[in-house]
Structures are given as C-alpha cells and as structure tokens.
Amino acid sequence: MKKHLLLLVALIIATSASAQEFYVSASGGFSIGSAGILTGTSLNADQSKATNHYGSYGEGINGQIKAGYFFNEMFGAELGFAYLHGSDQNISYYKTNKSDAGAESISEYTDGTGHGRAYGLTAALIYNFNQHVYGKIGAITKVGGKTEAEFNRETYTPLSAYGIDPILSEGKADYHGRIPLGFTATFGYKYRLSDNLNLFAEVEYLGINVTRDNSEYTELTITTPAIPAGVVGATAVPSMVWNLGDAPLAHPVFGTIAAPSEISYVDSLDPLNSDPSKSLSSTVPYSSIGINIGITYTFGKK
C-alpha cells in the first residue's frame, strides 16, 4: 500500500511539474469569407445586365478573449468569447414579370447591403507540436447578434408604362437566427516574451451557418408617386408617404399600403400563403478563414 501511495504522489508531482497551468489570452484579427453562397444579384444602371455576388457574413474584424488550462506540456483545453464586426455584403435582388403578350420586364428591384454583428462562444482542445507551434480543434456557436440590412426598393406597376415613377421603399431591418453549432480549427505560432508572456499569431478556420428565425424592420418608408389627372380616372392623386408605425395607408389606386413590422421564418409553409408576417426560412453562411494576433499570459510555468 505504501509503495502505491508513493507512486501516486510521484506521478502527481511529475504531472504538476510539466503542467502549464491556467492562462488567459486576448487577440484581434481579420477574416475573409469561406464557402460563401450567393448573397445578391445587382443590376447595372440601365437594368440591362445582372451580376451575381457571393460572400459570407463571417468576413470582417473580430476580437477574442480566451481562458485555458494545459494538463501537461502537450495537451490543453480552452473556452473563448468572440465578437464579429462583419463587412458589408451585397444583398440586391430583382423580380421579373411576364406580360400577357409574353414580354418580360423588371417588376421590382432592391438595392441592398447587409452585414453581421455576432457574439460567439468557442470550446477547443489544444496540442503543442513543440514549444512554438500548436494546433486547436473545437466547436463554436453564436449566442447573440444579428444581421443588419439596409435597402432601397423600386416596385414597378402597370402605370410605369405611362411614365409614372415606381413605388419607392427604403428601410433597415434586423435578422435574427436560431442557435447554430459549427466547427473551428486553428494552426498557430507563439513566441515567448518572458516566463509568463507569449506573443502569438494564428490562422483560424470557422465553419458555421445560421438559419434565419425572425426579422424586424427598424426603419421603413414607402412613397407612392404622384399620378396626374387623366392617367387613371379624372382625378389627380398626389404623392403619398407611409412610415413604419403608421396606420395602414388607403391609397385610391394602389390599395392598402403597409408592411408587417416583424416576420417569422418557418421550415414549412403553404405555397399560396398570403400572410406577410410569415416566410420560409433560409440559411446564411458565417464561415471564414482569418488571421489573429494576440498575447497570452500564463499563471504557471512549464
């Protein structure tokens, strides 16, 4: 029994001697989109050419704070908190309309941009290849944030054939997603500045997608054009404006004008759904490849 106790004590002492103990780190960096999808389709000035735009909302500037513990000189684990300040992505799109004669025309065009603002948590295992080179593998999830969109929309009507301007809509909307789960992998290099302080640089891959859950307009204005007498009936119709929060606008030509302040996104829906507050959900990418630079402070020595 005494031999076993002595062996256990010796093992604990040997393990403690090689452990790096607890550490904290802070870093910042920039990431580019990875595995991007089609985010928007823009039109040129005369609407004669459409151009696709691809991207990921994971592109942008990020900051991270992490804490970890090394069980020995090679293996460790860490938890991290990160913030993403995403770059603008093109989310423009257009709709076409086919007339009874078979001719097609642009019926609606939206010029818009969107960007991500996200908070995330990471959990990873660490392996030191040597005193300088290390690798990490783990999981990531988003715990807060949103995708912000800003847009200007032109909706063409049959009156456009008479030279009447389209209906103009402009606004801002916030999109919120369901809690996702993704994958993270890191390869880095650290340089010892002192016994407790290290400078590091790393390449980090994040693979994560966010499924849309709901959205809300934070700003919205819809402006209808003025219609002179003689175009529709004998009475002229002045330009009218509807703002978010106003009672529905009863327009004599275009009917009731308003928009839901919130939209819920679901996975199944009647294809003839007429409820503007519900829509089919979609998934947007937040995957990225980035470079981070930071410092690590270790409370224990090797």
Rank of each mutant, 00 (worst) to 15 (best):
P158E: 06
H132M: 12
D174V: 04
G102N: 10
S105T: 13
N72M: 10
G63Q: 01
L6K: 14
Y175L: 12
F71D: 06
S169A: 15
G138E: 06
A229I: 05
L199Y: 02
L11D: 09
P158G: 14
L79W: 01
G294H: 04
T283R: 07
A82C: 03
S279K: 05
T283N: 07
G233E: 04
V237L: 05
A50L: 01
K190M: 09
K66Y: 08
A35G: 06
G36E: 04
I263T: 10
Y162K: 11
G138D: 02
F70I: 06
D46A: 08
L269P: 04
A229S: 14
T157F: 02
G68E: 00
L5Q: 15
D174Y: 06
F81W: 11
I13S: 15
T224P: 03
I167S: 09
N196I: 06
F151W: 01
G60T: 01
D174P: 00
T122K: 11
Y265F: 08
S274K: 13
N52Y: 00
S42L: 06
V143N: 11
T15N: 13
R212C: 11
T256D: 12
S99Y: 12
G255H: 02
G33T: 00
D275T: 10
I293Q: 00
Q20G: 10
S160E: 04
T211Q: 15
Q47F: 08
L84R: 00
S34Q: 14
P238A: 14
S105H: 10
D270V: 09
G60D: 03
P271D: 03
S99K: 03
I140S: 03
G135Q: 06
H53P: 01
V203R: 08
I13K: 11
V253A: 07
L121T: 03
K66H: 00
Y205F: 12
L159I: 03
Y297Q: 07
T141Y: 06
G58I: 02
I179N: 07
A82R: 14
G138Y: 07
L249S: 08
P271S: 04
S279I: 05
N214V: 09
A247W: 03
N52Q: 14
N152R: 12
L199R: 08
L206Y: 09
N72C: 07
I295F: 15
Q20P: 01
I293P: 01
G76H: 02
D174E: 13
V24R: 05
Q89H: 04
I295M: 12
N97Q: 13
S287P: 04
P225T: 11
Q131N: 15
T184K: 10
A258Q: 12
A247E: 11
F22S: 05
I61G: 02
Y286M: 12
S215G: 10
T147A: 11
R153M: 14
W242A: 02
I222G: 02
V210E: 14
S16H: 13
G230A: 09
I140Q: 05
A259Q: 02
S34D: 13
F187R: 00
A101D: 15
H115A: 14
T96L: 07
E204N: 13
L159T: 00
I32V: 15
K2C: 10
A17T: 05
L38H: 12
T15H: 10
